[in-house]
Design a protein around this nucleic acid. Structure first.
Lengths: 197, 197
DNA sequence: AACAGAGTTGTTAGTGACTAACATATTGGC
DNA sequence: GCCAATATGTTAGTCACTAACAACTCTGTT
């Protein structure tokens, strides 16, 4: 039970190293497998695909819960935005090194960016479901969720690309554009952001 | 010069037929090529990839122009939304049969959905560039564009999935959620939509 | 009609992602 | 130490996609 976790971690870390050293395309699955001391079959038993080793995240239900916690009087778009803000404010900025490293590899490759979005689709649906608990129609909920995720992805990609700045401020900037009349500050990444346009 | 266009069309239509008859995954490039009377090399000379034959659209600068036409006093998000609305109101509902057919194939396959989004990235950047002409910062512009495209994609996918209803109403519904205080009706798909929530 | 050169297509042989089937280790509980 | 589950390897294959080069087919010119 625990060996499998170890193997998985070994493969993933070997993959990350190789991607950074030699580039994503130049790194074959075979090479990763050898570096990790396994066969390519083992690789595919742990990861659905080559890009999966870089981008597949374990599903996290936190965002859905965070959206549901937002007051129901808010318009769906605002609920979704504030939910996202609240969820991201709970992750410590230090734990994000790995996420950032992986995203910075992905942004340079269109296929990987696309794959990133595919992953976020799941999150989008979770958000939409959370919105529907207050009686919002399906399409409306999906639209609100889709807009938020579109904006969020831009913020995340910008953060991964640029060498400087925190993620909290970017998300705050993004979300505040979708609910411009509201005061959004003070809720995210404790201590970082105060005032925004 | 014109033979190549004919060949291209032949391949694409053969591909569409086969995708519909036997499914996307079950249809090999080899099979498409044979059906079109060419070799697989010719296929790849006309289309970058198997999914390209389904999803690669010729670049259309109309949306960028439509966004730039929107009054500069509007907040970026509203400019983008109205630009999108205006651009889509110019395409006749009858010309959309093919788009819909292709999208309805794509929605069933995660990889193809992702590829669709990849295509839309180009549009997103065009919109962002258009927004920047009034002095909006890069990140702000990208966020606004990203949010709109996120919402738009949901509308398009819903339209392609559902058997009924027009595309105009859906886009209007989507965009009006991003600029809820404004009157958005009467601008899109002449004659279809009047009042919306 | 014959020709030249540009544009288009085919052949072949290869790489790399990914899968199925089956054989073999390895592990953890008894 | 033994047994059943779990983890891994081998092999052989399919399919998307590419490089290199050969062959073909138009078009206009003489």
């Amino acid at each position: 039970m625990s060996k499998s976790r170890r193997t998985r971690a070994t493969i993933q870390s070997a993959a990350l190293d190789l991607f950074l050293e030699e580039g994503y395309n130049a790194t074959t699955v075979e090479r990763i497998s050898v570096a990790a001391g396994v066969s390519h079959m083992t690789f595919f038993r742990y990861f659905r695909s080559k890009d999966g080793v870089l981008l597949d995240d374990p599903y996290d239900p936190a965002i859905g819960a965070a959206v549901e916690e937002q007051p129901g009087e808010m318009v769906p778009l605002e609920r979704a935005c504030r939910g996202i803000l609240s969820a991201w404010s709970d992750v410590a900025e230090e734990d994000l090194g790995d996420v950032r490293k992986r995203m910075s590899i992905a942004v340079g490759h269109p296929q990987l960016r696309a794959r990133m979005w595919e992953n976020n689709l799941a999150t989008q649906h979770v958000i939409a479901e959370a919105l529907r608990t207050t009686g919002v129609a399906r399409l409306e909920a999906e639209v609100a969720a889709g807009a938020c995720m579109g904006a969020l992805l831009v913020a995340l990609i910008d953060w991964a690309t640029a060498g400087e700045g925190g993620i909290g401020e970017r998300i705050q900037l993004a979300m505040s554009q979708l609910i411009p009349d509201s005061d959004v500050s003070g809720r995210v990444t404790r201590g970082i952001a105060q005032e925004l346009p």
